[in-house]
């Protein structure tokens, strides 16, 4: 397979999500990967992968649609869409501002899923959101009643309605920045039932037993957090990135590095250090922030930026130690 060209795949909307042999992930169990889901396929076939993030609804859902299509054209191999939550504690100022713009525009989970229904990208889509948004999706009458001050008891919140809707919309994966592996069993189970990947973040502080625990639960790819702190474009690649990739080298899961990646040269350096992909968010959100709603040049700039990043990643592969082969 030529890794220079984009893999020939049906558009996302025509693929069935269910061609995945599940991996055994029980503690101590082995990974018996026999086939990959959309996400691993996209990463391996387009290695090294470019993964892009933008916030849905920033500055409007119509614009988001155009931006996603532009990123898809520009060479993004996976696209993360942020579903905005009012308390984005893992984000730096850039994405906080994007989330505020999306919330000010009135973006709701229902509209978010409608947008995903409409999108026909080649790149598989993931949703990135905070755990409370997943818990509250599909509110019951009981919880409404309780909010109005009426009698308890209310229903306990449940992750399943969200995951069902995500599967319905054709989303391939979910990333939840405030859900560590220790709390993830309910969501992990629901995702398994719907063949959706659940991506976990590996931080510079993640080591030993906890690293094993995360790597035994992750699917799709491991999101390698390049540095401590919050999201936001940076001028360099941190040393922590190299350390993290070295620690992860023995695990048979694709590794993608995010937090601070903003330029093609960063992408090259990260891929050269052994990553299977790079994740870029704030640098794209910066472009969106510079333009108003309905501004066509924004899409063109996003497409060009994606191209630069993808080329950087490819450059890095030339110097890479031993690209992982399927």
């Amino acid at each position: 397979m030529s890794r220079e060209t984009r893999a020939e795949r049906a558009p996302r909307s025509e693929r069935t999500g269910n061609e995945v042999a599940r991996k055994l992930r029980a503690d101590g169990g082995e990974q018996l990967a026999t086939a990959d889901g959309d996400i691993e396929t996209a990463i391996r076939e387009n290695h090294p992968a470019l993964i892009t993030y933008i916030t849905a609804g920033d500055p409007s859902l119509e614009d988001t649609k155009a931006y996603v299509e532009a990123l898809d054209r520009g060479g993004a191999d996976l696209i993360e869409l942020g579903l905005p939550f009012s308390e984005p504690t893992a984000e730096g100022p850039t994405i906080q501002a994007a989330i505020n713009r999306a919330l000010d525009a009135g973006t709701t989970p229902a509209q978010f899923f409608d947008l995903v229904d409409e999108l026909e990208t080649e790149a598989p889509l993931l949703v990135m959101t905070y755990y409370n948004m997943i818990l509250q999706y599909g509110p019951s009458e009981a919880s409404r009643a309780s909010k109005a001050g009426a009698a308890k008891p209310q229903n306990k919140p449940d992750v399943r309605p969200f995951v069902e809707r995500a599967a319905d919309a054709g989303l391939s994966g979910i990333i939840v920045p405030d859900l560590p592996a220790e709390e993830a069993d309910p969501l992990r189970d629901a995702c398994d039932d719907h063949d959706i990947d659940l991506v976990f973040i590996v931080a510079p502080t993640t080591e030993g037993e906890r690293l094993d625990r995360i790597m035994s639960r992750v699917s799709g790819f491991a999101y390698v957090q390049a540095r401590l702190g919050t999201t936001g474009a940076r001028a360099d690649v941190s040393n922590a990135t190299h350390d993290s990739l070295a620690r992860l080298a023995g695990y048979d899961v694709p590794k993608a590095v995010g937090f601070g990646v903003s330029e093609g040269d960063h992408a090259a350096e990260i891929v050269a250090a052994g990553a299977d992909g790079v994740i870029v968010g704030s640098a794209l959100v910066d472009i969106i922030a510079d333009h108003g709603a309905g501004d066509a040049p924004a899409a063109a700039e996003l497409e060009a930026k994606a191209r630069e990043l993808k080329q950087g990643a490819r450059r890095g592969r030339e110097e890479a130690p031993e690209p992982e082969q399927p």
Binding site: S86, Y131, Q136, P139, S146, K147
Partner: peptide, 24 residues
Amino acid sequence: LSTGTDGVLHGALTKLLQTDDGQI
């Protein structure tokens, strides 16, 4: 405690003042 509904904020599942969508 008197009027909130269950959800996750600042690291814990607890009672919260939130909208139906889960915004605080």
